[in-house]
């Protein structure tokens, strides 16, 4: 199980990186943490003549606070996202989702940009990005552009990032408080990709009415999904009255699951909607706690 040969490039800037991608087009591939790409290279499921290693591009690393949210460089390690205080404070869902990604050794190398660019439908960060309406900053030799989460995830493993483009950063909005956030997933073993998972954020107005609801789901479609029916059912409800299990069941309508060796589509729909209800209940509990504290 050894990768096929390739030429190795280790650019030190975004400009250099996108120039390389531009030059080599489909024959080139960015290498981030390598936790998804390298196994595929090793098994020769895919091969590229040029590997563009982003690990020496300093400007792609780091968390910055500003503009009502947080901007995270594409090469920021999952382990950093997991432990960064600003992320935990301002985008709790990223903090809550991170420990579910593989194992700490994976997160020491794996990057948030890689997770999002890889776009595994069972992956945690894409669902969080979708739930929170995150924005991707994308660069190419001809300039930079932005893509909303909704337009970013096109299909399984396919994103709005073209082969000659580079994902530079992700921006996540911070929510007004009080708000409740929760994340959970069903996985076969500790650290496995999710069979189904949910990322939930709930915000309320001064009277305790839900005025903001974000429900992202993973593992229940060819791309991450939003549970629009659940969000709609929540809006305007008094948070105290929301029947999480009942509302969670609506999520089944927002799924388009695909079966694999680990679980059938039917399972993902059934267990997934139960899980959405549970995570919703957690988020509501979190909200109560925060509202009580505040």
């Amino acid at each position: 199980m050894k990768p096929a040969p390739f030429d190795y490039h280790a650019p030190e800037s975004v400009a250099e990186s996108v120039a390389l991608l531009d030059e080599h087009g489909d024959d080139a591939k960015p290498l981030a943490g390598g936790q998804s790409l390298v196994p595929m290279l090793a098994m020769r499921l895919t091969r590229f003549e040029h590997i563009v290693d982003l690990n020496r591009v300093d400007e792609l690393f780091g968390v910055a606070v500003g503009n009502g949210g947080v901007r995270i460089g594409a090469m920021t390690r999952q382990a950093v996202v997991e432990t960064d205080a600003a992320v935990a404070e301002r985008v709790p869902l990223l903090h809550l989702a991170s420990p579910h990604i593989g194992h700490f050794q994976i997160r020491n190398r794996g990057t948030i940009g890689g997770s999002v660019a890889h776009a595994d439908p069972a992956s945690e960060y894409p669902a969080v990005m979708l739930a929170l309406d995150g924005v991707a900053e994308i660069a190419s030799a001809s300039g930079t552009r932005e893509a909303s989460a909704a337009e970013f995830f096109e299909s399984t493993f396919m994103t709005a990032v073209a082969p000659n483009e580079l994902l530079v950063a992700l921006r996540f909005p911070s929510w007004e408080r009080p708000a409740g956030f929760a994340f959970d997933e069903i996985a076969r073993r500790s650290g496995d990709f999710a069979l189904a998972g949910a990322a939930v954020g709930i915000g309320t107005d001064g009277q305790g009415r839900i005025n903001r609801a974000a429900v992202g789901m993973l593992g229940v479609g060819p791309t991450p999904r939003r549970a629009a029916s659940v969000e709609a059912a929540l809006m305007g409800l008094a948070a105290a009255d929301a029947d999480a299990a009942e509302i969670g069941r609506l999520a089944a309508d927002d799924m388009d699951p695909v079966g694999d060796v680990h679980a059938s589509a039917e399972y993902r729909r059934r267990a997934g909607s139960t899980l959405v209800g549970r995570v919703l209940a957690d988020a509501l509990a979190q909200l109560r706690k925060e509202a009580g504290d505040g």
């Binding site: 280790a10 390598g34 936790q35 390298v38 196994p39 050794q105 190398r109």
Partner: peptide, 13 residues
């Protein structure tokens, strides 16, 4: 200082 999978890194890296 950090635990990593050495099978998922290239020596050049």
């Amino acid at each position: 200082g950090e635990a990593v999978r050495s099978c998922l890194l290239f020596a050049v890296q």
